[in-house]
């Protein structure tokens, strides 16, 4: 007697034979370090599952793709009541706007991200593009901030309008972050 069951070869179905049209569009609208990551992580995971991904950067999200800003994203504890201290307890709200707090909080968060083996924003975008993801910039945000393609990462496909975005996102699952 045995509790082991022998069957014909069991092979995982990676879905290669199915033509999937699953598409994900992620709108990245934030320029804070903590809010840059949700979109990057989801984009990277989706690409690793064979899902087509387009990232659309708008408003403060522009800092993620602007050459001289993408490595300087900051995290501020101001207004964040979920900010916990390493020694336990919450950070008092009166303390968070003090000079130097943003620097300290940013440094801490960058270390935590690095400890997990998760890349900084610019390298993460390199990886997403290498995996087949495409980056798009918002026309109105570019005009407001007086930025052109020359200011953005070289792998940004184009600066596009809201109407172009409608074409881009047709039939896609869309996330606003």
């Amino acid at each position: 007697m045995t509790d082991v069951e022998t069957r014909p070869a069991i092979v995982p179905d990676f879905g290669d034979d199915e033509e999937t049209d699953r598409k994900l569009v992620i709108i990245c609208s934030k320029g804070n370090l903590d809010m840059a990551y949700p979109g990057l992580i989801l984009a990277n995971s989706a690409l690793g599952e064979g899902i087509q991904v387009d990232l659309f950067f708008t408003f403060w999200g522009f800092d993620m793709i602007t050459k001289d800003r993408q490595t300087k994203l900051k995290f501020s504890p101001v207004g964040n009541t979920a900010m916990h201290l390493p020694v336990g307890g919450r950070m008092p709200q009166w303390l968070s706007p003090f000079p130097g707090m943003t620097w300290v909080a940013t440094k801490m968060m960058k270390k935590q991200i690095d400890d997990l083996g998760v890349p900084p924003v610019d390298e993460f975008l390199d990886q997403i593009v290498a995996s087949g993801g495409r980056l798009w910039a918002c026309r109105m945000s570019a005009d407001m901030q007086k930025l052109t393609m020359a200011d953005l990462r070289d792998d940004v496909e184009d600066i596009i309008t809201a109407a172009d975005f409608m074409d881009l996102s047709e039939g896609a699952q869309t996330l606003f972050i």
Partner: peptide
């Protein structure tokens, strides 16, 4: 579960 591959029996999960 087990499955037969390369002429031997191997232990696999539900996906293989």
């Amino acid at each position: 579960s087990t499955t037969m591959l390369a002429g031997r029996e191997i232990h696999v999960d539900g996906e293989g």
